[in-house]
Amino acid sequence: MASTLSMILYFIIFPGLVFTAVAGLMTTWVDRKVSALVQWRVGPPWYQPFADILKLMGKEIVIPEGAKRTGFLVAPLAGLAAVALVSTMLWLASMRGTGFVGDLIGVIYLLTIPSLGMIIGASASGNPLASIGASREMKLILAYELPFVIAIFTAVTKVSPMTLKLDGILEYQAVNGVLLGNLSCIIAFVVAILCAQAKLTYPPFDIPEAETELMDGTHMEYSGPALAVVKVTQAMMLFTLPVFFITIFWGGLQLTGWGILYTIVKYVIIVTIIVLIKNTNPRVRIDQAVRFFWGPVTVLAVIGMILAVLGL
């Protein structure tokens, strides 16, 4: 009984929903601030994302005529719950001593739920532009999921004995040094970062949300608290993906002593790479994106895999 209660606390407060949401919103501030600096602007103050969310909570939800009400409102919540769960799993695996192992397949699967939620929500909204956004999102998932899975499994191949448990991967890295020290895993890491860009629908792969032609595409019809849920989910994804990469490629999160500082440095490096790619690339078309992911990126991922099998 006690363990059920602590699991619920883990999920809701730390390191689940509340903690991930706050950390994610801070990360979106870093994102906006860095973007502003790149563009030679001053950028928003640190509390900006929180002000945005508070404001959205106080607004009205407009449900479009012809929308499927339940699907429209429930779909973003499914995404939110899924990211919170992934974040909880990753942190518990890193925290050790909680008796939690964590399964890699589960993480990969749950990381897709927010995108699926957006597809369902956008299709339920009954708006033609939103449904174009949904169809693009679908194609994008089909495009990036293959190289993403190959990249993750490169790390799994590298670990001996081969394991799908987050715990096992961390254990191996604690003994034998971080996986990022290997050529194959460096390649896999690059591939994973490119896929993360698409998972977050950041430029150059912000095709489903194309501000100029689709007017925010999949998010178009959301307003008020529902939009807040969508924004928080995105922010949490921006926080969770780097943590995921740190866990499987870069030795995991150290939560004691100087390790905390080291963890933050690793996290900031990955976020900065993502934000810089975001700011220096124009949006590509959906067919170019699919060709890019199924062509060069998949080839790169397979090369990484082969190198890992060869033991590099």
Binding site: V42, P45, Q48, A51, D52, V62, E211, T212, D216, L227
Partner: peptide, 12 residues
């Protein structure tokens, strides 16, 4: 954007 003002694409 210093003041949190930004242009959005959708009236919603």
């Amino acid at each position: 954007e210093r003041f949190g003002i930004k242009l959005v694409g959708s009236v919603k």
